[in-house]
Design a binder for these strands. Sequence first.
RNA 1: GCCAGAGUAGCUCAGCUGGUUAGAGCGCCGCACUCAUAACGCGGAGGUCGGCGGUUCAAGUCCGCCCUUUGGUACCA
Length: 508
Amino acid sequence: MKKAFYLTTAIDYANGSPHLGHAYEKILADVIIRTKKLNGMPTHFVTGLDEHGQKVQQGADKEGILPKERCDRIAQEFKNLLVTLNISNDDYIRTTEPRHKNVVSSLLQDLFNRGEIYQAEYKGFYSTRAEQFLQEKDKVNGKWPEIYGDVTEITESNYFFKLSKYQDWLIKFLEESDDFIVPSFRKNQVIEFLREPLNDLCISRPKERLAWGIPLPFDKNYVTYVWFDALVNYVTAAGYGNEEFKDLWPADLHVIGKDILAPPHAVYWPIMLKASNLPLPKQILAHGWWMSSGEKMSKSTGEVVDPLSLVEQRGVDAFRYFVMREMTVGQDADFSLERFESRYKTDLGNDLGNLVSRLFHMTATYEKGVVPKVELNEEFEQKIKTNFEAAKEKALEHFNAFQFNQGLEQIFIFIRSINKYADERTPWKLAKSDLSEDRQKLKTCLGVMVESLRLAIQMIAPVMPGVHEKVNQLFGLPACENWKTALEWDFRLEGKTLGEKIILFPRD
RNA sequence: GCCAGAGUAGCUCAGCUGGUUAGAGCGCCGCACUCAUAACGCGGAGGUCGGCGGUUCAAGUCCGCCCUUUGGUACCA
């Protein structure tokens, strides 16, 4: 069996409700996986939840409930979001699941047995109030701020993973790879980061300080901390230890935010895998952040409009279209309600929605809803077919390079050209004529428009799966499964009776 | 401080390895049309491509310096 294209998102941290950032990453990953499917690849798409750690425990303590109860509730919120956003994930992994704990234990034990993990003293400044070690950078004016309360220097025994011995190997690997990290400029940031000598990674916390975690298999007085828990989800979900593992691993693509590229995904993770004798993922895609007039968006800034509320107001497809159209993958973008409304009204309503509306209306009134046979192939027809071929080539190329904003632009250029074609042929005038020549032109025009719209709708499927299915239903087509066969200019709908006209993107 | 991204029409952005009068969408102003969600189509105004200097026959496009802005600098998507 052919290896599936295995794609993951970062797993969300179970400490707070989902916001635009979470939604965007899922949509981006979903659009990518849908394009892979349409290109004929078998796929496997996993997302999930990171549930251990201090913040989760503290959050639960504050509410007076068990960490697991809190995680269950938050997991449900995140899962609901996936449904709302029409995300087509095949699996949802939670780090509290037995399958995950087993894999973490087994990897840790193996590394410990082979001397990749060792015990040592960790000396640092500890804040009892914040329940954490502080760094020099936490100081303000050379002093620890009030919020940390009493800060004392303590020594604690912990376990460490030998990162530093792999530093040279990693630098060499990164320098030789050309598309391991996308966008490429981020690779330089990672290599820059690696210019400083790496410290070994502290991977444990004593149980008395943190109980909510996966115990170290070789020392039950400790739990493992953060990265050996969170990152390992990618191999857990690939079925590490089972038969299916070889069909999925290595991952083809990790979709993550730019904030967790270096060091976690570009430094810790490759080294963890290398030390475990596992192959590295093929590619890491680091996306940017949504900003609000230059400010990073988060729940703490108290937005006037919650972006996610637009999903309910304008529909999930409009929302997916907006974030894909507006964001240059890898860079930051601004989220503004005005931009959203403008995209909704003009691109979706006026260009696409209105085209659907006018075309189905005309076909119904002029041809009783039956797609007529195309009898002419004059300049206008040749031109729009050329437009389609160009849009197809460019759009698919952009999609493959994760440049969805540009791919969508190409598709909408084509959609606008369908409207233009209607203006050139003026079917509403032809319909008033009895001349056989005009009848022929009318049939041709409608047939060509139907074919053009059909093709545009197939290309838009990964971004707007809902609209795609709806319109395909009116065409009497099932959801598109493979672009190769679907994106052929062949008038396959000739003679079919179309469904009734619908308003795809209503104005209020 | 160091590293990186961004700085192109009012707004959001395209402009690959340097090469004709710098492009698109939105917004604005006109024209036209009436099948359609008062939608579509056409035309127009609007830019010394952040600044200075350099390389070149030729530079938003390469080099240097500077300015503005965002992010990273060991655990918030």
